[in-house]
Design a protein around this nucleic acid. Sequence first.
DNA 1: CACTTTGTTTCCAC
DNA 2: TGTGGAAACAAAGT
Length: 269
Amino acid sequence: MPELPEVETIKNELTPRIVGRRITDIEVFWEKMVRPLTAGEFRIRIVGQEVTGISRRGKYLRLHLSGGEMLVVHLRMSGSLLLDGASDNKYVNAIIRFDGTTIYFRDPRKFGVMWLAKDEAELDKKLGQEPLEKDFTPRLLADILRKRAAPIKALLLEQDLIAGVGNMYADEALFLAGIHPRRPGSSLTDAEIKRLHKAIQTVLRAGIANKGASIVNYYRPDGDVGSAHHEFKVAHRRGETCPKCGTPLVRITVRGRGTYFCPKCQLAA
DNA sequence: CACTTTGTTTCCAC
DNA sequence: TGTGGAAACAAAGT
């Protein structure tokens, strides 16, 4: 399930393969994935352009096109971008052909979407702080959380606050910081905020170093899986025990999302 | 057949 | 207006 580390990995591995190449054709088999444009309109706007660069913002991958627009790809939950030879023919909802290679947009659940954006502002206004940038400081995190009473887990998932943290890494960061997922954001002490800030960066950096987590559906462009999930302490570890204290992990629901934590290491108080 | 999965949007209450 | 929470939605695997 592509969150920040997974999308970063895809960006890194796709860059040397498609930057500088021209898009020769694009086929979209699942019309809804390019709404509001029709597949035909989408194709006409893109074919013939060169990919001048690839960047990531939050969980969104952006292919910069020579015409000035950006092709924004949102792989949500079950989507992958597979290079030539790495894909079977199942669940391929779109094909982007370049001079020299091909990308298959494979997405069994058809949750992923693409669209064209004029400039970066269009995406920026929806997304908050990049958690791995220098300007993400404990002070900034404190400012974000100070006036919010919602559960800290819910706040970590809000993309307009911090961009790129999803369900797995939110659970991991809270475990590492020793904070209960239901704690109100405004109740965190300065020491806890400092720990959480560090934990967020630690789990995201580890995720990138391990090339992403392949718990359910996540394939790198060459078809390989990532290994970040082997390092997970609590996320998705249903029925297992806490690696630190041996207490059985607990699963609760926070804002409708499955949430795993250790009831002993992450006290509710 | 109910349930799970995630990110986003929409709707409602306060 | 902002906030919090619930529900809906996308589709398929278990």
